[in-house]
Design a protein around this nucleic acid. Structure first.
Lengths: 162, 162
DNA sequence: CTACACCTTGTAGTGACTACAAGGTCAAGG
DNA sequence: CCTTGACCTTGTAGTCACTACAAGGTGTAG
């Protein structure tokens, strides 16, 4: 790979960081958890030395993270691309599709949240006294209903839409 | 408050949890970080004893969390509603609006992510060899461009769209 | 009296880093 | 040669909002 231009001789972690948009701390973290391999150390000192392959791997990692893949998913993608290059990419496709479904689900949740929040805000003109605030009312108002409903599910599976 | 029905005498943490949809562990956590006050302990034993006000506060907290407010924001909202009830609720309104803007921004990012991911998937028919996989290509392809651009911003402010 | 469900505290783990401390190394300038 | 200062090294602790677990205490029903 890297068909364009001369190969990069030896990068320090800071240079690699600058080229890939990661921080050196993040790169060391990736190394620690085994998502990127431990690089050679320069003969003279003991600084980490990176090359083209590292730049690519890290750029890949960063892009995948930006697309919302978890580090575990990125690890899987990297395993695929590290493996037999003649194998079918069906696994990669499946992972990406599964992730897309998750993103769509999250999008739906977030949209619902947005509308609920906008609705709550819409009821408040901001000029009321706190005692009559519609936002606080809307947020607090459900307690009685819940209590009247009696005991509900514990251990909810939230989905963490934050 | 609780204008409907008789007041609740004394709830254990488990009962409070069931009524508010939290877990007992989460409630103890909220107490530890000071978002909910330390309750009285029953005279007989040393179990936590909760009442109506706690049910309301916790229900409020949970609803606000479900709307994506951080615990810090919930704390602020609770401080407003704990304070002078005659004060204007403009602060509440401002906080909610700021939060809505954050949600909208996240929504935009997530939508862009979705489209990028869908586009990447669209290029792959799943039958290719890994070496030619369009998904891996699309994710890894930017390394050279980035490298050619030279050094970029470090310490990016990500926005964390996950 | 014994089982059992629930409670108590405290600690450690999650994900994906970030922040800091205390020290080592390297290239350039004087 | 020596110093300065930027960068690197390791290791540890902190973030957020919890969850999970361990080891033991309590309350109630049979």
């Amino acid at each position: 790979m890297t068909e364009a231009g001369r190969p990069i001789a030896g990068l320090t972690i800071g240079e690699l960081a600058a080229r890939t948009g990661c921080t050196p701390e993040a790169i060391r973290y990736y190394e620690r958890v085994g998502v990127v391999p431990r690089p050679a150390r320069a003969g003279s000192g003991r600084y980490r030395q990176y090359g083209d392959a590292d730049v690519e791997r890290l750029a890949f990692l960063r892009r995948a993270r930006e697309l919302g893949f978890s580090l575990a998913e990125v690890r899987a993608l990297l395993t695929f691309s590290d493996g037999d290059p003649d194998r079918s990419c069906g696994d990669v496709d499946a992972l990406a599709r599964a992730h897309l479904m998750q993103v769509d689900a999250k999008l739906a949740q977030l949209t619902a949240l947005r509308d609920a929040l906008a609705g709550v805000i819409d009821q408040c003109r901001g000029g009321l006294a706190v005692a009559d605030c519609r936002i606080l009312g809307a947020l607090g108002g459900g307690a009685r209903a819940s209590a009247d409903n009696g005991i509900q599910t514990r251990r909810r599976a939230d989905g963490g839409v934050t």
